[in-house]
Write a protein that binds this DNA or RNA. Structure first.
Length: 560
DNA sequence: TGAGAGGGAA
DNA sequence: CTAGATCCCTCTCA
């Protein structure tokens, strides 16, 4: 029921405002994220944005317009402006109105609404992919992806029911090899797998699954391989991750080592299950335009392609992906946010977001550790402030991020959490070296050899050292040990993805059930503050609250 | 034959 | 855009 005591207002421009301190807020947030995204989250009043893409994602998991509106009204202070309601209805209901289906040996585009057919005729860019005969819109199978991409770009999502090639069969079964028993999956993992693979449903078989770090995304990939029973190509973003996939497949499925190939710079093998990197595939000889390794997509009859860390998928891979629309495609990520605006390509070519479980829900159920986030704000010293003001905008962020005043806070936090496993994470090597010199804790950067990294990680794991200082290596390293405390001293501009990744380091469940603490150190009234706010956005969207502290450890507010 | 440095790319 | 990490390839040296 609409009521003035509710927390939500839909504005005339279509944005949604919600009172973040309201008792109904966390419930409302979970609902709003079903069809919108968080735009701004200042204290007190949060803004959400609805776009065609956010609505299509919600349609793809089954929301209808009427269901959405009736549920929305139960959180609203006032009725939704009628022109906004009409706009949303139009956008949402486009999903499913244009269907691509099999028709003999070719494909056919069918309209459930004649008006849409008329609208689309006017779009020049799709003409090359259409052959209109006897009132039927025929599409060549090889144009399946490009047509979908062009139509999506024009604002018309295509509901693809043309089905998949099964690929070459490959028996795969989940099993706990160590104990010789079937592998037991967590309930949400089973649900994610079932959502992807629906028997007899041509639309089951492509899409993106979003799950926090430590929630077992690899196992979901393996579970889907078990459902598909076919040869599989797995793409990921670095070699450590390639090796990790291989190890998990050997440990947790019936597949033997010789059925798994890795395809990277130093070692190239194509086997029934092959694991490669995005950089391998996007490699081009300098000065040429060919991608010599794209052929990997045709080396075997893959029935499934898994895109690990799909938020990092580079542009050329989208192009190949457009050509393999008849192959099942699974995207995995902890945070489906891109700062380059290619979300639409992920949606169009890999698939919509089909499964997404809020981080806080997994926390409540005990699958990931409890975590509290802090933003500690401090001043910039007089001398530094002068330097900041006279610096070019390009350098200002760095000056603020490297604020020497952060040192004292780090010292205090290290003392406060003495005895716990602590990661200090930052973006500037110079700053990290200073911290390492001050604390005596070892520093790991991209320069550190794999051997040394491994030995430090082991010492940290065994508790021989309790503080580890890490650069951006922490963003990519899958083998970085986990901790219960993280101190973020600087970060990559506005990267939400990075912040999510860093908190993720603290989320492996703790044996003693302890709470993890994530500290973000920010210099007041500088660009550092601005970027920090942007970085926090993904986690606040997930329901994490940042407790704002001043230098003296006094609580001064909340960001939620 | 393999290790290691260096360049280019995204 | 930044700064940094990573991966690919090629070249050199033993």
């Amino acid at each position: 029921m609409i009521s003035y005591s509710n927390p939500v207002i839909v504005l005339n421009d279509g944005n949604i405002m919600a009172e973040s301190e309201h008792v109904l807020y966390s419930e409302a947030r979970e609902f709003l994220l079903q069809f919108s995204e968080l735009l701004k989250s200042p204290q007190g009043l949060h803004t959400y944005r609805v776009t065609p893409l956010t609505l299509w994602n919600s349609a793809s998991i089954g929301w209808t317009f009427d269901l959405l509106m009736s549920r929305l009204e139960s959180y609203c202070k006032f009725p939704v402006p009628s022109h906004i309601e009409a706009q949303w209805k139009e956008w949402l209901e486009r999903y499913g109105k244009i269907v691509l289906e099999k028709d003999g040996g070719t494909l056919r585009l069918r309209f459930k609404d004649e008006k849409l057919e008329e609208k689309i005729i006017g779009h020049q860019e799709i003409i090359p992919y259409i052959n209109k005969k006897n009132g039927k819109w025929r599409v060549a199978p090889r144009d399946r992806g490009l047509l979908k991409q062009k139509l999506l770009g024009a604002g018309f999502p295509v509901y693809d029911l043309a089905g998949y090639d099964d690929g070459k069969p490959l028996p795969v079964f989940l099993r706990d090899k160590l104990n010789g028993v079937p592998l037991v999956l967590r309930p949400y993992q089973v649900k994610a797998i079932d959502t992807f693979y629906r028997e007899g449903n041509a639309n089951g078989g492509n899409g993106v699954i979003v799950l926090p770090c430590g929630a077992g995304k690899t196992v979901i990939g393996l579970g889907i391989m078990e459902k598909c029973q076919c040869e599989t190509l797995i793409l990921t973003n670095n070699t450590t991750s390639v090796l990790q996939w291989k190890r998990e497949i050997i440990e947790k499925t019936s597949l033997a080592e010789d059925q798994i190939g890795i395809y990277v710079g130093t070692w190239k093998e194509v086997k029934p299950v092959t694991i490669s990197t995005y950089q391998m595939l996007t490699y081009r000889q300098t000065g040429t335009t060919r991608f010599p390794h794209f052929s990997l997509f045709n080396r075997r009859r893959w029935g499934l392609v898994i895109y690990d860390e799909v938020h990092l998928l580079p542009a050329p891979i989208f192009r190949v992906t457009a050509e393999i629309q008849a192959t099942r495609r699974l995207g995995l990520t902890a945070a489906l946010v891109r700062e380059d605006g290619c979300e639409e390509d992920v949606f169009g070519l890999v698939g919509p977001k089909i499964y997404d479980i809020p981080w806080r829900k997994l926390e409540k159920e005990g699958w990931i550790a409890k975590a509290v986030c802090y933003e500690i704000r401090m001043d910039l010293g007089e001398k530094e402030r002068e330097k900041y003001l006279s610096a070019s905008p390009k350098h200002q962020y760095r000056i603020a991020a490297e604020n020497p005043g952060k040192m004292e806070v780090i010292r205090r936090l290290l003392k406060k959490h003495q005895g716990e496993k602590i990661l200090v994470i930052g973006q500037y090597i110079h700053q990290l070296k200073t911290i390492s010199a001050m604390t005596g804790a070892p520093l790991i950067t991209g320069e550190t050899s794999q051997l040394v990294r491994e030995s430090q990680y082991n010492k940290f794991n065994r508790g021989e050292i309790s503080v580890l200082i890490v650069s951006k290596v922490a963003n990519f390293a899958v083998d970085l040990p986990d901790a219960s405390i993280a101190i973020q001293v600087s970060g990559s501009f506005g990267s939400r993805q990075e912040e999510a990744q860093r908190l993720g380091r603290l989320l492996r469940p703790k044996t003693d059930d302890r709470t993890s603490h994530f500290y973000s150190l920010v210099t007041k009234q500088t660009k550092d503050e601005e970027f920090a706010l942007r970085r926090h956005r993904f986690l606040t969207e997930q329901g994490y609250q940042y407790i704002i502290m001043d230098e003296k450890d006094e609580k001064v507010g909340f960001l939620s």
